[in-house]
Every structure is written in C-alpha cells, then in structure tokens.
Design a protein around this nucleic acid. Structure first.
Length: 874
RNA sequence: GGGGGCAUAGCUCAGUUGGUUAGAGCGCACGCUUCACAUGCGUGAGGUCACAGGUUCGAGUCCUGUUGUCCCCACCA
C-alpha cells in the first residue's frame, strides 16, 4: 500500500486527479429517467482574456453546488462555454491590429473574422484550461460557444420570432454612439462618471435687433446642429422672446425660440440650445416642436459637412475652435467650471456621443411585464431576495433595447434588403425576394448585441428551437450563479427571453454573489494593477485552498476581500485534514478496521458520531439554501475541533493500548467519521478529498461518485453526546486550573471528584488522564477528603478538587474563586430577574422557561459551593 | 432625484423563522520539542452589536427616525 507524505502537497496530485475524473467521465451528464435532473448553465466567460478572481469564485460556487447535487444522486448537468463577447473581443483585436499597424477596414470582413476565430481558439482554450485547474466538474462533451452553429441558429430563430410579432423594429432614434469603437451601444453599456468640464455661456443674437439670448452648454460643438432655443413658458424673463427668431452664430441659420416645459428655469441661464440630433432630451423637444434634425458629426467623431468650415475636425478640436471664434465675435459671455456626468464606453472608455441613428430595437414593455410577474409569483427566486427589488427596478424603468452593432465579430442580423425595397427577415438565407422575385438580396451589415445571444444561453445550448432530448430533460435549469453587476445585462434578458421563447422561466433560483475585492477593499482592476491571478494562487497553495478561501466567511450577495492570509488558513486546514487522515491510516497499518456496524460504541464514539450527525444535517440544509459559507464553516469546525482536537486525542489510549478489540473498534469509528467528513468536504475541496479517498482501504470508485451522507436519527445519540460534553468540560477545567496557577502542563496532578457520573468518568479515565495531564482520579464524597488546601471548580459532572501542594499561591486561588463567584451571581440575577417577570413565565414557550429555571438552580448550587470553598481557604 | 447595501472583538467577516452567557479566522498575551500535523497543541484577554425611539415577556435580529459610509440607476442643457 502506498503511503501518504508527511505534508499536504497539492501539486503532487491535482492534475492527476483531474485527469482521472475526465477518464472516468465523471462529469458527463446522462439523461436518466430514474434520476432527477439538476442543471446549471455556466455564465460563459468572455474570450477576451483570462479568468480573474471573480470568475474563480463564481465557478467555485457552481462546482461546489454541482458536486453536492451529483453526490445526492441528481443527474447533474453543468454546461460550460465561452462568450464571443462581440464588442469586447473586436475592440481587443482592433487594438492588437493597430499595434501591428493594421486598420480593421483594410483587412476586410472575411480576413478579420478569420483572425477573430484564431483569437477565440487561443483565449477560449486558455480559459478552459484555467477552469480545469480550478477543478470544475463541468460536462466538457457539451462545451458551447455563443457563436457556434447551435447558438447561431437559436439567435436567428429568436430574432425572427420577435420580428414577426412586431417586437423588433428598425428606426431612427437617439442612441449611444462610441466614436472609437464605431458602433451603437445599449443604455446598459454606457458607464457614467462625474468629469470636470466647463459651462460655456454663448450669446445668440435675436434677428433684426440688438438683443441677445444667452444659453449655456457643456458641448459647444453641438451648436452647429442647433435648430432652436427653448425657454420655459412660465419664465417671465423670456416671455417676449417666444416665437422670435435667432441667428445661430458661426452658422448663420435662423432658428426659433420655442417654449417648452422641459427647460428648468433655475438652471443655467434658463435658455437652452436645442440640438435634436445630438441629445436625447433635445430630440424629444424637437419632436414636440417639429424642429429639423441636423446631424453634424460623423461616426468617427469628426464634424461632417453640416459643420461648414469646421467639417473634418475632431469633436474636441472643433470645440476649441468654436469657443475661440465665439470669443473673437464677442459672443462668449463667460466660462464656468462645471462637473457633470459624462457617458463612457463600457469597453474603451471613450466619451459617448448621443447621436440620432437608424438602428434595430427590441420593444421592451411587452417582454418586461411577464419577466416581472414570474419573480413576483416566485417562479424564479433571487438569493438573497433583496436582489429581486433591483431586478424589478430595472425592468420597470426599461427602455427599448438597441440591439444592432456596427461590428463584424458577432451574429449577423438575419435581415435582407431587396432592390425593390422589400425587407426580408428569415432564419435561413433567402435566395429570392418573396415580393418581386428578385435575387439581388443584400444582408444587413450589422451584428447583434452580444447579450442578444447570451440571453438565449440556458436553452440555445440545449438545442432549442429543436425539441432535443437534452432540452426536454434538462430545461428549465435549476440555478443560475452570477454577480449582482450582471443582473441588468444578462439575468433580466435571459428571464424575458426564456419566458418569451420557451414559455418557461429559464431557472428556478438565481444565486447572486458579490465582487472579489483586494485586501484594501478596492475593486480589482487592470488600471489599478491590483488584480490577483487565480493561477498563481493555485500554483502556490493548490486549487483546494483557493476554493475554500473563496467560500469561507462569504454570505450570498456580499462583496468579499481576497487576502493571502485567508488562503493560508484554508491551506492550513487542508493540511490538518491531510495529517488527520494520515494518522488514521498509519494506525490502521497491517490491521483491518472493524466494520462500523460491528463496533461496540463507547461514550466518546457516540459523542463524535452525534456531532457528525448534526454536522451532516446542518451542512446539508445550508447547502440546499446556498449558504456555502456557513456550510464550509460548520465543516471546518467539525473536522478541526471535534474530530482532530478531541476525538483523535480521545482515541489514542485505545489505539496505543493493549486491547486489540478496543483498538479495532476505535479504528472502525475513526474510519467511519473520516469517510463521512471527506464526503461532506468533497464539494469544497475536491482534489484533496479524492486523493485521500484513494488511500482508504476498499475504495473502488471515486469519492466524486460517492453518496452524500444522510442524517441518521439512530446515530444522533443526543443524550449520550450531551453527557459526554461533561467529560470534555472536565478536561478543559483541569487544563484551565493548571494554567491559572502556572502549573506546567507536563506536571501531572491528582484529581478528586464529587460526582454522580462515576461510570462515565471511569470508562473515559485513560482519556481524561491523558488529555488533562493528570496522574489519578479519585472519587470522593466531600471536598475535605481531597486534603486541606485545594483548588476547586464546579463543573457539569460535579465538583472537582485538586490539591494545591506547594505550587500555588493561596491568594491567587481565592481571587480566581471570587471572580468566578461574581460571574455566577451575575447569572443568578439575570435568570432570577427573568423568572420573576410574570409576563415571561406566562408568555414564553415552556421549554424556554424550563431551561431558564434549570439554569438558575445550577447557578444557585454553584454559588453555594464557591462560597463554601472560599470559606475553607481563609 | 430614485433604489439598494453596509455599520457586530485590534483587523476581515458570520450570525438561520426574535429565545442559553453574541461567534469564527487572523492578530494579540501566556505556556507547550504531548510518539498525525509548529501549515501544530493548550489557556486566555478583547464586544454599551453606529445613535435615538418603538413593537415584544424577550431585539444584534422586526418597525420608524438620525448619523456615517459604499454601490447602482436617472439627471440640469
């Protein structure tokens, strides 16, 4: 038999263990009508780069849940995949091309796409190998990619269905335009930040008069597209101006002064320049007043021919020149510093231009309503549920979704235009125009927002719209695990898409987690350079330590800080588990442990088995509620404190003793508890548990396929366990007494005990002597029998006396007893007060009252004993 | 302007439907070469649960308000 090494060294086995799981197809999901399916769709990481700590946590949570359910006997499908991330990836590739001195346009669509697929192979592959390093038990046979044929087909079908229902339309509206990426964006893809800017006050001359109207603007260059100035109808300062005509400076266009409630009298000058083509509010004003829309900017952010002499200038250069010319013309009234919110491209951070543009949109109102209802009716549940409010907030205020992108890397919009003007939407490429029979059909140049395909992920990956076996068995999915920052982008869109296309909510539960922050609580980001690479941590500490550290002390929905100290303490715990296992195996060497069923259980055995049962129950409940942090806490506490610090130590007299039956019995219990602990831990730390499992005798299949432990009432031994706590307390009492009087731990003391539990103490005598550092225990009927000067302490099992000998200062012992007496008196006052309250006695549950009474009695007894002892010492 | 989170030990955080003396890890103090483990063992110190009210027999937990702090959304041109 191979032997375990003295220290836990994850690098020795993690890769080997993973290869073994793959080889045995342990992750492969099987359609089995005798089993209940359990499905998790992995949020597909973008192929833009590599996994960061946030991914590591997200994936670890999913893997932990998947392994737990698999062991519970569900047919688990955890479907992995990656996202083409249209804009994000295209932006990266364009950047890379620029470094090589190549412009995207010069490559052409086809060549560009070829390179993009190359990129996908490289980075997609990297991500997958990272997932494997982490130990992810996903079904690689079903690996998906948002741009593969299966998903693309689903995208075309979805588009077609919405188009046919009139929920997709094409129109000219104000959209968010990124001049650097050269594409439209959805509202969600714009991030606002407060930037320092200026408020320029310009004078616009009134036609045929010496008067001026002063307007204020933060974007002077848009004045080239002004088609009116608006004032509030209630603003007396301007009432005479309404209806008059102004001459737009630098351009010379005549523009009207209109009255509109939109204008805030208090803000700025109370007069607003109106540029319908470049501002969403102005666009609305323009519609109300029938104003012309003049677009003055090109897609790349330069001024177009409408800008006259400014044509061709970049927007910021034009801004400078316009301000200078206005000043030269005496039309610049003043410049004030002004902080205002500016929209930035989510991907490249360039300043967004609101621009009127012809784009494709999804009508949201009819889709958002059922998505809201589904959560109201609890068909889908958020964990924690406060995120439902955020979800509602988004859906209730949602505007139509701009889905077209002027990009190449993505799903091409399935719409063709015929020379005759016919617009054809079709799942498959049409060859003739159904209206005129013409064959010259040109497909729309644009791509779809990447989230349009992500929205279909829970079912497109299962073959929808085909009624595949996978789809029928595994859909709807059980739980979606993702961060709160993704709710508006993705969760919401999967919800309305799932309901719209499949008639079912895509998942029952949405488990929301927070962000992984750095040690100082800052967001990990590239610009700060404070990101930590999960692979480096795995290299140093092993995947299990990383996993455990990402789950312990974390509550659903809350942000967490990542620190080396946390990984270290996880590593220490795993090392502890490793050594405890090694201890059990070493002691079993050459001998077959007794079958657990045959063991004649001792009190200590019943205690640890009882603790195991409550741990099983608590951990299972926590896992089912997705309280992974709590489950991990309970488990580490059980393994470290109960099993290692107590039970293993308690078992030593039997293991090292002369009685072979006792020895084999102890081993039987040790193996039983260890095996169960390993199973409970496996979802959290799969590698090390699988490795240790392989050393256990008689294990043919992996722990990954083992049955999850079940709570067994027959093994609960509640009463016996409670009684045994008394033994533990006794040992702790002796230790504490020794420390209090600075008696070296190695010095054995003689114990005298007044107790009703002689049998319990006798059975455990050897353990007590060993763990308490005692030489002998004698039962006595009164303290005086222990000698003249003794230390004493009331404990669960009775009254303990230890002769002071020459070691101890009498005063110290008196002080200790007085302190203890103080504490007990406090307790008597508290419990007594409670019980003196008639309301408490009458209204609180009987058990609570009875417990309180028992406590009071116990303390009164302790008080008497303490007082007697103090008297004897003085 | 709207919505939400957080405030508990020196630090980082847990705390289930209100019910023993509010917990953990790290840190700190003291003591241990105890034959699995110093990545360890033992013992301990440390908390008016932000503040003020309220509901209740009973509040860290529920309600109202205040303060501080963070996030999301909207937005004044």
């Amino acid at each position: 038999m191979k032997e375990m090494q003295t220290t836990y060294n994850p690098r020795d086995f993690e890769d080997r263990i993973y290869a073994g799981w793959i080889e045995h197809k342990d992750f492969h999901a099987r359609i089995d009508q005798k089993k209940v399916p359990f499905t998790i769709m992995m949020p597909p990481p973008n192929i833009t780069g590599q996994l960061h700590m946030g991914h590591a946590m997200d994936e670890t949570m999913q893997d932990t849940i998947a392994r737990f359910r698999r062991m519970q006997g569900y047919s688990v499908l955890w479907l992995p995949g990656t996202d083409h991330a249209s804009l994000a990836t295209e932006h990266k590739i364009v950047e890379k091309l620029r470094e090589e001195g190549i412009e995207k346009e010069s490559l052409g669509r086809e060549e560009f796409l070829r390179r993009a697929w190359e990129w996908k192979e490289t980075y997609g592959g990297k991500i997958i190998s990272q997932l494997k390093k982490l130990g992810c038990s996903c079904d690689w046979d079903r690996l998906a990619f948002t741009l593969d044929e299966k998903c693309s087909r689903a995208v075309r079908e979805a588009f077609f269905r919405l188009y046919r229902k009139g929920l997709i339309y094409r129109g000219s509206r104000i959209i968010n335009w990124c001049p650097d990426c050269g594409t439209a964006l959805s509202d969600e893809e714009v991030a606002y930040s407060e930037d320092a800017g200026f408020f320029w006050h310009f004078r616009y001359p009134v036609k045929d008069s010496d008067e001026f109207v002063t307007i204020a603007t933060t974007r002077p260059e848009t004045m080239l597209g002004d088609t009116a100035v608006a004032v509030n109808p209630a603003d007396k300062r301007y009432s005479a101006l309404i209806g008059k005509t102004l001459i737009l400076p630098l351009v010379g266009r005549e523009i009207p002064v209109v009255a509109d409630d939109y204008v805030d009298i208090e803000f700025g000058t109370g007069a607003v320049k109106i540029t319908p083509a470049h501002d969403p509010n102005d666009f609305e004003v323009g519609l109300r007043h029938n104003l012309p829309m003049i677009r003055v900017m090109n897609d790349d952010g330069t001024i177009n021919e409408e800008g006259g002499k400014f044509a061709g200038l970049d927007r910021y250069e034009a801004r400078k020149r316009i301000v200078a010319e206005m000043e030269a013309a005496g039309l610049l009234a003043k410049i004030e510093p002004h902080a205002h919110n500016v929209g930035h491209c989510h991907r490249c951070n360039a300043t967004i231009e609101p621009i009127v543009s012809k784009q494709w949109f999804v009508k949201m109102k009819p889709l958002s309503k059922p998505a809201i209802d589904a959560v109201v009716k609890n068909k889908t549940k958020f964990i924690p549920d406060r995120f439902a409010k955020i979800y509602f907030n988004w859906l209730e205020n949602i505007r139509d979704w701009c889905i077209s992108r002027q990009l190449w890397w993505g799903h091409r919009i399935p719409v063709w235009y015929c020379d005759c003007g016919e617009v054809i939407c079709s799942v498959d490429t049409p060859s003739v125009c159904p209206k005129c029979g013409g064959t010259h059909l040109v497909q729309d140049e644009d791509c779809l927002d990447t989230w349009f395909s992500s929205a279909l992920w829970p079912f497109s990956t299962l073959g929808w719209p085909e009624e595949t076996e996978d789809f029928k068995y595994f859909y709807p999915t059980d739980v979606l695990v993702t961060g709160y920052d993704i709710i508006p982008f993705w969760v919401m869109r999967m919800m309305f898409s799932g309901i719209e296309y499949t008639g079912k909510v895509p998942f029952r539960d949405v488990l929301i987690h927070g962000l992984v922050r750095d040690e100082q609580g800052r967001k990990m980001s590239k610009s700060l350079g404070n990101g930590i690479d999960p692979l480096e941590i795995i290299e140093k500490y092993g995947a299990d330590s990383l996993r455990l550290s990402l789950l312990t002390g974390v509550a659903p929905g809350n942000d967490t800080r990542f620190t080396d100290a946390k990984v270290e303490s996880s590593r220490n715990f795993i090392n502890k588990l490793w050594n405890a296992s090694r201890f059990v195996l070493m002691n079993a060497k050459g001998e077959k442990p007794m079958k657990f069923e045959e063991v004649k259980l001792q009190p200590a055995d019943r205690w640890i088995i009882s603790r195991l049962q409550s741990t099983i129950r608590e951990v299972t409940v926590s896992m089912q509620k997705y309280d992974l942090g709590i489950a991990a806490d309970k488990l580490t506490d059980f393994v470290w404190n109960d099993f290692c610090d107590w039970y293993i130590e308690l078992s030593k007299p039997a293991l090292y003793g002369e009685d072979p039956e006792r020895r084999r019995s102890a081993l039987g219990v040790l193996f039983f508890v260890l095996e169960n602990a390993l199973k409970l831990l496996h979802p959290f730390v799969p590698f090390v548990t699988e490795e240790i499992w392989s050393y256990l005798p008689g294990k043919r299949s992996g722990i990954i396929a083992a049955d999850y432990p079940r709570y067994n009432t027959k093994l609960a031994y509640k009463k016996e366990a409670k009684a045994f706590e008394g033994v533990i307390e006794l040992i702790k009492t002796v230790r504490a007494m020794k420390v209090a009087v600075e008696c070296p731990p190695s010095k054995k003391v003689h114990l005298f005990l007044v107790t009703d539990s002689k049998r319990l103490v006798t059975v455990n005598k050897n353990s007590i002597l060993r763990l308490a550092g005692a030489s002998e225990i004698d039962f006595i009927s009164a303290g005086a029998e222990a000698g003249e000067k003794t230390m004493s302490q009331v404990c669960e099992l009775g009254h303990l006396f230890v002769p002071l000998g020459e070691l101890v200062d009498l005063e110290e012992e008196k002080a200790r007893l007085e302190k203890e007496l103080d504490r007990v008196m406090g307790e008597i006052a508290r419990a007594g007060g409670k019980l003196a309250n008639n309301n408490f006695v009458a209204k609180a549950p009987k058990k609570v009252v009875d417990d309180e009474r028992a406590k009071l009695e116990k303390y009164i007894d302790m008080k008497a004993k303490l007082e007697k002892q103090l008297e004897e010492l003085s």
